[in-house]
């Protein structure tokens, strides 16, 4: 019953990302969109925390939100477009959007 967790808020102004990281299951996925993509800012503690996640956890980020913010992606991030987002939502047993 792996879960895809979807985050869209900046990790620098609230606790969604840190709470989510503590609750992730070993086969879960994490998709960053909107301001949550700032978590990939190189040199930030948030980016380091993401890089240190167990390798079994997949990390995704939405292409256009990265482009809009001029963010470069670390190698473990899989960049997806909107059709990719839809495909992921179907691939996981459930989606947990951190609204």
């Amino acid at each position: 019953m792996a879960t895809l967790h979807v985050l869209s808020h900046s990790p620098f102004t609230d606790s969604r990302l840190s709470s989510c990281l503590r609750l992730l299951g070993p086969d879960d996925g994490l998709l960053l969109c909107g301001d949550a993509t700032y978590a990939l800012q190189p040199g930030s503690a948030q980016c380091l925390a993401l890089e240190l996640m167990p390798a079994t956890i997949s990390l995704f980020a939405l292409d256009e939100d990265l482009a809009a913010r001029a963010l470069k992606t670390p190698t473990r991030v899989q960049v997806v477009d909107y059709p990719g987002f839809v495909e992921l939502s179907c691939r996981f047993a459930k989606v947990n959007s951190w609204l």
Binding site: T3, R22, L23, A93, S97
Partner: peptide, 18 residues
């Protein structure tokens, strides 16, 4: 605790976070 929360989320068919 954290690991019990992971198991809790796993157990349910759907999750809504508000």
């Amino acid at each position: 605790d954290d690991s019990a929360l992971t198991a809790l989320i796993d157990r349910y068919d759907q999750v809504i976070t508000l």
